[in-house]
Structure formats: C-alpha cells, structure tokens
Write a protein that binds this DNA or RNA. Sequence first.
DNA 1: GCTTTACTAGTTTTT
DNA 2: CTAGTAAAGC
Length: 661
Amino acid sequence: MKKLVLRKATPNALAGGVYRINYAEELNPAQLEAVMHTNGPALVLAGAGTGKTRTLVYRVARLVEDGVPPESILLLTFTRKSASEMIRRASALLDGRCERVSGGTFHSFAHATLRRFPFVLQPDAENGASAFTVMDQADAEDAMNLVRGKFDVAALKKRFPQKHTLYTMYSSAVNTARSLHDVIVDQYPQFIEEEDRIGAVIRAYGAFKHEHRLVDYDDLLLSLLALTKHDEIGPLLRSSYRFVMIDEYQDTNVLQHSIIKGLVGDEGNVMAVGDDAQSIYSFRGADVRNIHGFPDAYENTRLIRLEHNYRSTQQILHVCNAVLRDAPMMFEKELFSERTDGDEPMLISCQNERQQSSFVVQQILELHEHGLPLSEISVLFRSGFLSFDLEIELGKANIPFRKYGGMKFTEAAHVKDLLSLLRITVNPRDGISWFRALLLLQGVGQKVAGTVIDQLLASVDPINAAVPTVTGKARTSVDELLRALRSAMALIPCGDRAAVLASWYKPILERTYDDHPKRWKDIETTLAICGRYATTESFLADVALDPPQDTLDDIAPDDKEDDFVTLSTIHSAKGLEWNTVFLIWVNEGRIPSARSAESEATLEEERRLLYVACTRAKERLYMTYPAVMFEWEHSDVLGKPSRFLDAVSEEICPKYLLTEG
DNA sequence: GCTTTACTAGTTTTT
DNA sequence: CTAGTAAAGC
C-alpha cells in the first residue's frame, strides 16, 4: 500500500491539478519557463514586443491559481498606466481574483506605505499632525527657490545655480546614491567653487521641507528605503510581499535597486523584467548596470530570454535591428518575427514642418478611410513641443487626438492656484502653497507674503490664527482669503470644498487672464474630478503622483470621442503599440537632441530612444523629417536625417521626397 | 521699500 | 508659454 501524504490544499490542487488557463498552449517555451518559475530570483530579458507584459500577467495569474494570496504579490512598474493595465489583464484571466494584487509605481507604492507608517517620517509628529503634502517637481523647485532667496546669491559676482539646477543636483545625488560633491564635480564643474554654498542651500531646503511637512518625489523613495531597514516594519513588509515583480528594470536607479533588495530580503522571490536596449531614463538616475548586475546581486539568478517578437513585421524589425547594430551593449539581441507580410517602412523628407504636418494628416485620413481605427495610429516625437504644428493641423482636419507627455493639465498656472488653496486646507503648514495663494492677492508681493506666512505659521492653528498685521488693501484681501479657507474646511467632500475655493478664486482669474473663460473651464474640469473623491487628501495624493494625463482641451466634457489618434513623446509611449506609427522630426539635432551631443552615454541613450520608437509599430512605420528647420541662433538651417538612420539601408527602408501636387 | 508691469530670452525626456 | 529682470508706479 502506498504511503499517504497530506498536501496543502490550493485552489489548483482542489480543481484536480488542472489549471483553468492552459499555460503551455498560450505561451512559448521561454515565456512558460518564466511563468512557471516560483521561488528564487529570476531575470527575464525581454526584447521589445516579445510578450513581456503577457508573461508578467500570466505569472500573476499562475501564482494566484496556485493559491498565493493576490495581495502578497507586489507588482512594481514605472507608470500607473502599465500597472493598472497589467492588473486589469490578469483579472480578466481569472475573473477578478487578481484585482487585489499590490503595487503600482515605485512612488505611489512608497506613498501608500508611508501613509501606513507615518511616524518614521515624522518621529515628532503630534496628534493629528501627521499630514504631509507630496510636492511635484515644480513645487519642489519653488520651495528650493524660496530657500535660495534667503541666501544672498544676487550679490555674488559669479553665477549661482538656478532653482532647477539646484533641484537636479540634489535629486541626482539622491537617486544615484552619490555625494553632492561627486555630482557637482561630474556634472556641474562650473559650480565647483560654490560647492559649500550649494550644500548649504540644499540642507536648508531639507529643513524647510521638514518644517512645512512637505515631501518631494525623492523623499518618497528614501523613506521607503528607510522603512525596509526599520527593525519592525522591515520584516513586516518582507512577510507581506512574498513575490516581488518589477517591470522595466532597466530604468531603475540605484536607490530603487536598494529598495527592492530591502523588500525581498534573503528569500529572494524577485523577478525583474526588462530590456537593456530600452533604457531611456538615465537623466532620472536610471542605471543600466542594475539590470546587467542583477545576476551578481542575487545569487542563483535564473536567466530567461524572450526573443521572439510577436508585435511587428520583419520589415519593421530590420529597421529596429539596424538602428541598434552599432550600439555597444552587453546583452546581444536580434529580434525576429514570423510576420513577413508587411509594408516596407518609409523615410520621408519634407520641405518644412508645415508640409510634414500636412503629410501626416493626409495619411491618417487615408488610412482611416480604408478602415483603420484612429486608435491604431500614433504619432511619436522626441520632445513635447515638436507636435505643436501638427496639433493645429489635426484640429483643422477634425481628427480627434489625445496627447501624452509634455505639459500636464495640473501644471497650468490657474489649476495650480486652485490646488494650492486645496492643499492649505489639508496641510495648513504648507508654506509653498501659502506663498502661491498670497501672491494672488492685490497689494501682496513676495515681502508681504513672507511676513504673513511667518506670522501664520507661528501659530499652532494657522487657519484660525489672528489676522496678520498688514495694512491697507492687503489687509482686507488676506482677511477674505482666510475666511474662504475656513468655510472650505468646514466641508469634507473634496468637490464641495473645491467649489468654495473656486468661487473665491474666480474674480482673481478674471482679473489676471484675458482668456479667462477658457481657463475657467479648466477649473470646472478640476471641480468635476474633485467630485469623484471622498476626501481632499486622496485627491491631492493622486494629483501629485498620477496627474490626469489629458491636456487642457481634451478633457472638455463634449469630447467624449473614444476613437482618437495618440500623440505622444517617445518616453510616454514606452510599453505601448499601434498598427501604424508616424515618427516625426527624425532630424539630426532633434533625435539625438542637440543637448545630448556632449557625451557618448547621452548620445547612446538617444539611439535607444529611437529604437523604442520604431519598435512600437506593428505594421506600418513612417519616419518623416523637415529638410528645413528653424534654429534660434541662425534662423533657417538645412535639416538632415538622424545619424542613427545611417545604418538603415535603402533596401530596408526606402527614402522618399515629398513634393506638392 | 515694495509691488506691478513690460520686456526678453530660452525651451528634453518623468515620478 | 513662462521664468527672470529692469524700470515704472504706489
């Protein structure tokens, strides 16, 4: 008689050992290996279009089918879009069971964790004072500027770094785990002499944040790292998240690498997925060495390669491979596809920008007439402003489009004004928001605002403190602002609170901007979004970490079009795909951008950027460049195609000249 | 002394 | 489009 063994019942085992999903049938061998991998570290090197997302999604489903509680799976990605997309797809496989998977972006996960254990950030937090505000980069730079102003830098003979540069220095030091000294020597040698003063400003910035309970993006990551090292919380986190998966690992920086190490601990159930050829975030501290060094960082790493491309036709892959051919890289790869039925990609020389826009519009109309949905078409470009002319032309032709990247809704001055007011109601110690709000008032400039803030914040309860000692016109307006804030705070729902503040703000808006009707619409849009949130806290957290992507015009209520062309920066297009891709402005000086010419490393990043752009296309790829482009210094300049296209032969990608008529 | 206004110059990429 | 600056106005 055979010995009987007790096995832990899992849903899968109970179902007779049969998975609901037939993994072997739906995945190729390499994908299947990754999906079936359970314990220990694994690195999945996945070329563009090789089913990276699919693999992650199926692995989540497989773990859940094997009885792993969804909330103990942590899925970290770089954009909220891809995080929710993955969880949505996994849930679709297993009727909703995967919805409780933990994760999001590094920053949003850090934020959520921080809210769970706020005392680590503020050991001295009094009761009810645990509120903190997350600043976006613009806020952080404003804060830096405020602090900078307290140092008498205008009196210096030499130039002192601007707020943006100061913030970048600080952020770069944090994200690459280097000292400020090293950052200045490496990247800002012109400021070596001012090193001490720069250090002092940045320290003062840190003190300012602490004092006003402000947290910038880097603080979120730093605090998360601190939590993983905490005696009690560290082990708690490690036992909560048994399986950690990170998408786009090539874009992690040293700090994020340490966070992962801290979260995974010795057990090492970590799966990193990425493609070193698609590393395009080094300006944010991303370090390709993270993915290259992964097998060294985790002992016994299982290496899995996905090379079979399911997305694009071989004709398009020829171009992608050619772009990458001369790139120095550690993980060799050559993408291949079985789809050999496609059109050849085209490189098109246009006379000028106007003609380039007309061409794209004309082609879109034609493709659409032949039955291609607009949602299968995208236009990609290196920098946000490169699409301005095209946006006008698309508008004229009544082609609906949505733009990703570039200026965000919440970055518009008038929207930021309203957000500042809301922030004060949540965190009355938020000096940056006070400053912005006070400057709105007539008769209040930087000086008066400064004194008012000092007086208000001296009180435990700034909102209900006595009206500060200012005279004249400023007196009544400060009074009115305080009254508006008080009545707003009496209301809890975010929509109601925002409405009170918006009506206070309306006359200011009308006085300040000639185009106030258009801007008031944006305010109304903001109010509509506020209405979806129960509390102002949750609304503000989302705005800072996951701003509504839509640009100002698109979000208008009458624009409920769901078939639209996507306009996107290449950065924002990562991980996405379309049937037809127009890549505009493939000029030398645009990609690579003129600014990247300084070093080999930045230049190579531009090459990978072009690679990412080309690999988004499934069937058709049009690359266009204006033969004449406008430059600041010398008016018109002859435009020539990007140097990265030199390796792309006429055979792979025929060249065309666009002419009238 | 401080605020407001009028002007100029310089624009990568994102959490 | 907006941040920074110089000069005019209160």
